[in-house]
């Protein structure tokens, strides 16, 4: 555009002096219009013309739009996060944490209960064992005493019988010994009678007594 304006100027200059005068007057106006047009292009079609020359990330023409949309998007994101998403995730995690803590506490409580029960069981077992031992001991003592008593009885009875028997034996012996003289006298009388023909009982007795005395 600027180039064509220049051409017009040159064309104008090539003509007569009047025309030259005219041309110099006309040319700046045209040039002005041309630069205006160029400015207009830059202003309206910034996104097509300007980008081919400026490195896009440093192109100020796009800053306004980017900032606006960034502000809108980031504000929306912040609101969505702080009002909806994060409280929800936070509550989920918190619920889970309290649940796990509660469960762990419950487990701990149950464990302690179990331990208590085990201890009680142990104590009861020890008590029972002790009792059993005592009962066994008692029973053993009782049986022992019983046995002792019975043995003493039996022994007493036995010894009584032995003394009775001994006494009977003694009486039998004395009785027997007492009978010995009579039997000897009778034997002697029978012997004498066989040998000498006659002998009285009294003589036999006297003879036996005499022998016995020796």
């Amino acid at each position: 555009m600027a180039g064509s304006a220049q051409d017009i100027i040159y064309v104008a200059q090539a003509e007569t002096g009047d025309a030259l005068q005219e041309g110099t007057v006309v040319a700046p106006a045209e040039e002005h219009a041309a630069t205006d047009a160029a400015h207009g292009t830059e202003g309206t079609h910034a996104s097509t013309e300007a980008h081919s020359e400026v490195f896009p990330p440093f192109d100020p023409a796009s800053f306004g739009s980017q900032l606006l949309w960034l502000a809108l998007c980031f504000a929306a994101l912040y609101l969505l996060m702080s009002r909806v998403a994060l409280p929800r995730i936070g509550s989920i995690i918190e619920t889970r944490r309290t649940r796990i803590e509660g469960d762990l506490k419950e487990a701990e409580r149950l464990r302690q209960e179990t331990e208590k029960a085990a201890a009680a069981y142990e104590a009861a077992l020890a008590e029972a064992r002790k009792n059993a031992h005592a009962i066994a001991e008692e029973t053993r003592a009782g049986i022992k005493a019983d046995i002792e008593g019975r043995r003493a009885d039996v022994e007493a009875q036995l010894s009584k019988r032995v003394t009775e028997a001994e006494a009977r034996i003694l009486t039998d012996k004395t009785a027997a010994l007492a009978n010995v003289a009579t039997i000897a006298a009778e034997t002697a009388q029978a012997l004498v009678a066989r040998i000498s023909g006659s002998a009285t009982a009294a003589e036999a007795k006297a003879a036996v007594a005499a022998v016995n005395k020796e």
């Binding site: 910034a46 023409a61 306004g64």
Partner: peptide, 19 residues
């Protein structure tokens, strides 16, 4: 200069995906 551009589109997509 407030046009909805490709940059704006991807910002919206980013926020949309996250949310």
């Amino acid at each position: 200069g407030i046009s909805f551009t490709n940059s704006a589109l991807f910002m919206v997509l980013t926020v949309g995906l996250i949310a």
